[in-house]
């Protein structure tokens, strides 16, 4: 082993060393992809169209008008239950914070989207599976309040395994908190667009994510209430092909549109312009 590593390091070819830096592989079709192009293509495989998970900041850049985003999320999680499983929750939090550079599983702020003033909230699946605890719930409620106060539209990009187990009943209560806060947008007639990405399940689907005026889903995204593993265990049968994928949900009437990420901003802008009472008639802008 050691010898092999030594040998590899001594290999003079600079080109070979760069391979992991410059190239990546499509998770679905295995195609070799030039990373720079892959990123410019918003993490969609140009060969097969598979939508890979996208880092939160790049997600923000893909939706917010250039130079308009100002972060408002700032809360940090605590460990109210003193939760310990095979590792203390407090340690897990530190590890996620180190790994992602974020305090918790959400990035949000104010911006313009196609010229429409908005609050944009993006869930970070890389942080504890995008799970919703007290911080995520509170940031969403505050985001809604800010949108209502300032006459902004609300856009939430969901990516989450559901409510966070380590905050137990307090996580569960975030479902009610976030849902009730949406009433402020109803009262002010402000639009709310939800974008369901891979994966969106559990207490996030079953609360604010499902209650938008317009719901988009990304192609192939896993979306549902129970996870497929739990369902398989319950019914003891294999699940039908395409079950709980975005296209399945469209067919069953749960989402408005399944939209390719490369066309997503355009469609979100159209929906916001249609709905926002403060935006005048301007088709095709």
């Amino acid at each position: 082993m050691a010898l092999e590593r030594l040998f590899r390091r001594k290999r003079p070819s600079g080109e070979n060393r760069d391979i992991p830096e410059l190239w990546t592989k499509c998770e679905a079709c295995g195609a070799q992809l030039y990373k720079k192009e892959f990123k410019e293509n918003l993490y969609v495989c140009p060969k097969c169209g598979h939508h890979h998970r996208m880092p939160v900041w790049e997600r923000v850049e893909s939706l917010a008008d250039p130079g308009t985003f100002q972060e408002t999320t700032r809360l940090a999680p605590l460990d109210p239950l003193g939760f310990v499983d095979t590792k203390p929750y407090a340690e897990r939090l530190q590890a996620y914070q180190k790994e992602t550079g974020r305090k918790d599983a959400i990035l949000g702020g104010t911006c313009q989207i196609g010229g429409v003033p908005a609050v944009l909230l993006v869930m970070d699946y890389a942080f504890a599976g995008g799970s919703m605890g007290s911080v995520v719930g509170e940031e969403i409620a505050r985001g809604v309040e800010k949108a209502a106060e300032e006459g902004r539209a609300l856009v939430i990009v969901a990516a989450s395994g559901g409510a966070r187990m380590q905050e137990a009943a307090l996580s569960l209560m975030q479902m009610a908190k976030t849902v009730m806060s949406l009433d402020l947008l109803w009262q002010k007639r402000l639009p709310y667009v939800s974008i369901l990405t891979d994966p969106t399940t559990g207490g996030v689907t079953a609360s604010f994510a499902a209650l938008a005026d317009v719901i988009f889903a990304e192609p192939g995204a896993l979306i549902g209430f129970a996870g497929p593993r739990v369902i398989r265990q319950t019914i003891r049968q294999e699940l039908p092909e395409g079950f709980q994928r975005a296209e399945f949900l469209l067919k069953h009437g749960m989402v408005d549109r399944v939209t390719d990420r490369r066309r997503l901003k355009g469609e979100v802008v159209r929906a916001l312009r249609h709905l926002h009472p403060g935006v005048p008639y301007a088709p095709g802008v």
């Binding site: 479902m175 009610a176 849902v179 009730m180 949406l182 009433d183 399940t201 559990g202 689907t205 079953a206 609360s207 604010f208 994510a209 499902a210 209650l211 549902g224 209430f225 129970a226 739990v230 369902i231 319950t234 019914i235 699940l239 039908p240 079950f243 709980q244 069953h252 009437g253 749960m254």
Partner: peptide, 26 residues
């Protein structure tokens, strides 16, 4: 818990739970 099954998912289990939370809150 709410039933985790194929039929429940097809008929929008997550959606009705969200709606019920909202309706009761109102």
């Amino acid at each position: 818990g709410a039933y985790p099954g194929v039929s429940a998912e097809e008929r929008g289990q997550a959606w009705v739970i969200a709606q019920s939370i909202q309706r009761m809150g109102r």
